[in-house]
Simulated scan of single mutants.
Amino acid sequence: MSSREDETLARAAVAALTGQLELTPKPGLPDPRDLGARATRRDLCSLRWSAKALTPGLAAMVAAARRIGGPTPELRTELGAIGRSTEHSVTLAGGGHRGALWVLGFLVAAAALDPGAKGSEVAATAKRIAAHPDRRAPRRPSRGSSMSAKYGAAGARGEARAGFPHVRRALDALAASRSAGASEPNARLDALLTVMSTLQDTELLYTAGPHGLRHVQAGARGVLEAGGTATEAGHAALAAFDDDLHTRAWSPRGTGGLLAGALFVDSLPVVVSSPVRVAA
């Protein structure tokens, strides 16, 4: 795999993130209606711009995986260092996407280790990378780690160590909606709501507490149980759910990054090259 192919894989990940941003209506999340920084407090134009700042870091993660050749402790440590440097670059570009960076970072590294893999295979390789501790990670607590400790939520770290179950659920939802004849935007919205209906979103726990989390999960399930976003009843339920989160100013931010991860994996294989043997 060449440096150009490294960047191709990174650009595919950023394209998946941008595709998630462009999807509308996304309850509580930035979308094309947010040119005026609606309830999400994030202007979509700035989020599009800062998403591009992830490209060099993601390409570096691909190159590291290709060079090291397996889901080793060394690779986990290097991904952590690259990720923290990329977080700084994204902050300078306007901020946002912290969760998406780590989801996509593990997944691009996994894809680089096993070119041609799709779906659960990529998630399984990412799980093997995430199983190792990041020994150079700062020891200061984050919102996510605090909520994980307080409520027992898996958080981003637990999601990765479990092999991204919500990415896999989103992929299943995409396939099911497409098979049922839904348009691509509706299939993606159904996948987003599938994630939202079960994810223990630590950012949402921080801002809205356990009651707010259960309220959001129930709202997402309500849209799906009404038939999904492609149906008249589901569309009406989605509009009501969107209005509700807008009024409450609640944002289930973790779901957006996981949907971006699913869209990236769904786009694979992006790079065709000789496989890298994944070490046990």
Results as ranks from 00 to 15, higher is better:
S2C: 08
D6T: 03
A15R: 13
A16E: 02
P27H: 11
G28A: 13
P30W: 07
P32C: 09
D34P: 04
G36D: 15
A37T: 13
R41V: 07
D43I: 06
L47N: 09
L54H: 03
P56W: 08
G57T: 08
A60K: 14
A64Y: 03
A64D: 04
A65Q: 08
R76K: 14
T77E: 12
A81P: 02
I82K: 08
T86Y: 02
H88G: 06
G95S: 12
H97W: 13
G99P: 04
W102H: 13
L104S: 12
A109W: 05
A111H: 01
A112Q: 04
L113G: 00
P115K: 05
K118N: 09
G119V: 15
A124N: 13
A131C: 01
D134M: 11
S142P: 04
S142V: 07
R143W: 09
M147H: 06
S148L: 00
Y151T: 02
G152T: 12
A153Y: 01
G155C: 13
G158Q: 04
E159F: 06
A160S: 10
R161F: 11
A162L: 13
L174C: 00
S179P: 05
T194G: 01
T194V: 10
M196N: 03
L199N: 06
Q200F: 03
T202S: 03
R214H: 15
H215G: 06
V216G: 05
V223N: 11
G228S: 01
E232A: 15
G234C: 11
A236F: 00
F241H: 10
V265R: 06
V271P: 01
S273I: 04
R277I: 09
